[in-house]
Amino acid sequence: MITFDNLWATMEKKGMSTYRLRETCDVDNKTIRRLRANENVETKTLDKLCQALSCRLEDIAEYKPSDQTY
């Protein structure tokens, strides 16, 4: 499972609000909701977030193994 817990910590560290993130990255409320719920987002969105926050992918997303098998 991919989680975005690191995103919120990075945003706080850099003083970025969700409002400012939406304006800077041109992402909508639906995408913010999906990030909060650790749901799927497009890689271009991750790229926008990394650019806006001047960070690396691991600063916003993390893989956590789940018990579910595929």
Rank of each mutant, 00 (worst) to 15 (best):
I32K: 02
S66E: 15
T45S: 01
N38F: 13
N6G: 06
T18K: 00
V41I: 05
G15R: 07
L49Q: 06
T3N: 03
R20I: 12
E12N: 02
T10Q: 08
K14Q: 10
A37W: 02
K44L: 14
L53V: 07
S17Y: 11
C55K: 00
D28T: 08
V27F: 10
Y70V: 14
T45W: 06
R33E: 08
A9T: 14
A52T: 01
G15A: 14
K13W: 13
W8V: 11
E39Y: 07
D59S: 00
T45A: 04
E58L: 12
L46K: 01
K14Y: 14
M16I: 15
C25Y: 03
L57E: 07
E23V: 12
E12C: 07
L53P: 01
I32P: 07
S54A: 06
T43H: 04
L53M: 06
L35F: 00
K44G: 09
C25H: 03
R22M: 15
F4E: 11
D26C: 07
D5A: 14
Q68D: 13
R34P: 00
W8S: 04
S66G: 06
E12P: 02
K64Y: 13
M11N: 04
A52Q: 05
P65R: 09
A9P: 01
L57Y: 04
K13D: 15
S66I: 15
D28G: 07
A37K: 02
V27Q: 06
R36Q: 05
Q51I: 11
K64N: 08
D26W: 13
N40F: 15
T69W: 13
R34Y: 14
A52M: 03
L57G: 01
